Simulated scan of single mutants.
Amino acid sequence: MNQTSWGIIGAARIAREQVIPAIARAEAGEVVAVSSASGKAGQYAEELGIARAYDSHDDLLADPQVESVYIALPNGHHAEWIRRAARAGKHVLCEKPLVLGPAELELVEEAATAGNVVVAEAFMYRYHPQLEALRDLLADGTLGDPVAIEARLHFGLERAPESAGATDIRLDPALGGGSLLDVGCYPVDLFGLLTDAEPDEVMGTAVRDHPEGVDTRFAGTLRYGDVLASFDCSFDSPFRGSATILGARGSVTLSDVFRADRMGGVGAMVVETEAGTREMAPTGDQYAAQATAFARQVRTGHGDDGPWRWTTYACRTLDRLAAAATPAH
């Protein structure tokens, strides 16, 4: 069976609520340790039944019973701890965005190669069956040649008053904050997955209405050959994570393309062609499938070419979008 022993770096909510339970559901191994620099590891481990807790991430990496780590730290710390984990011989599943730019990606690749370890980005949506169904629709000609892709991902982030003196990590530029990196990375990753390419052109615009100067809303337009792609994202709207792919013969809309888990794992796809309209509801456990895929990579000794290629595309494209953005107020 494809299993690995896991250490959790960062006592984060996403690990507690999503990743750790998914590892158990997938039978992808056992979580044997957790570390937190904030002193929360002991209580976290006790509540979740994890055997060992460390107040130092380096101590967790020195644990010989930990084969793989899941990194749930702020964006700005990803590259450093991926490299440290690789040097310690640990395989790495890291939250998105994997790194903050191409320079960090190159360093991470070098560390993974030198350590002979698997490094994967935790884009769980890639593993939901609706993505395979979508790619099948594009491959079998149902939609005709792709013309345009539209995607959006928004959620409401409660902002503390300036007088409170506390800044959410997603609003902290030093930690890789901003809506483009935090949520815009999903549409950008989707574009790379569907086109299997980097864009020929990018344009971006941002709203930066927070004192720290990060983008709280972002919109981008990209061209992949003859295919146009556009997206918007923000911290300022009720949740919406949808995508529409327009083809020469029809279209398909996915209303929960990124977070089908919010709907009990049931995807919602509406296909419209000259033959009529039909609904599809692929069902799956994207977090568990992600854990299974990662454990399989660890056991086989190599990563999957597709996901790493898409990670590379997204990293470079996000960097280009950030550079192209003109602040809008």
Rank of each mutant, 00 (worst) to 15 (best):
N2Q: 11
N2R: 10
Q3I: 08
Q3P: 02
W6M: 05
I8L: 15
A11M: 08
A12I: 06
A12Q: 06
R13C: 00
I14C: 13
A15T: 04
A15V: 07
E17Q: 14
Q18M: 14
A22Q: 04
A24I: 04
R25F: 02
A26C: 09
A26L: 06
G29Y: 03
V31K: 02
A33T: 08
S35M: 02
A37G: 13
K40F: 02
A45H: 00
E47M: 09
I50R: 04
Y54K: 08
D58H: 12
D59T: 00
D59V: 00
L60S: 06
L60C: 09
E67P: 00
L73G: 03
P74E: 03
A86R: 01
R87S: 05
K90M: 07
K96V: 05
K96Q: 13
G101V: 09
P102Q: 07
A103Q: 15
A103C: 00
L105C: 04
L107G: 15
A114C: 01
G115W: 01
N116E: 15
V117C: 07
F123C: 11
R126T: 01
H128R: 10
E132M: 04
D136L: 10
L138W: 04
A139W: 07
G141Y: 12
V147R: 14
E150A: 12
H154R: 08
G156L: 13
L157K: 11
L157Q: 14
S163C: 00
R170F: 12
L171S: 03
L171M: 13
D172Q: 11
P173I: 10
A174Y: 00
A174L: 05
L175F: 06
L175T: 07
D182A: 13
G184E: 08
C185W: 01
V188Q: 06
V188R: 03
D189F: 01
F191E: 05
T195K: 05
E201A: 14
A206V: 03
G213K: 05
V214S: 01
T216K: 01
R217W: 15
R217T: 12
L222E: 03
G225T: 09
D226I: 00
V227W: 04
L228R: 14
D232G: 00
C233Q: 01
S234K: 04
F235L: 09
P238G: 08
G247D: 04
G247A: 10
G250V: 06
S251T: 13
T253P: 04
L254S: 13
D256K: 06
D256S: 11
D256E: 07
V257R: 03
F258E: 05
R259H: 14
M263Q: 11
G264C: 08
T277E: 12
R278L: 10
R278C: 02
R278H: 14
M280R: 13
T283M: 12
G284I: 09
D285N: 12
A288Q: 08
A289I: 08
A293T: 09
R296E: 15
R296L: 11
Q297S: 15
Q297F: 01
V298D: 07
R299A: 15
G303E: 14
T311A: 11
T312K: 14
C315F: 00
L318K: 06
A324C: 10
A328D: 14
A328G: 09
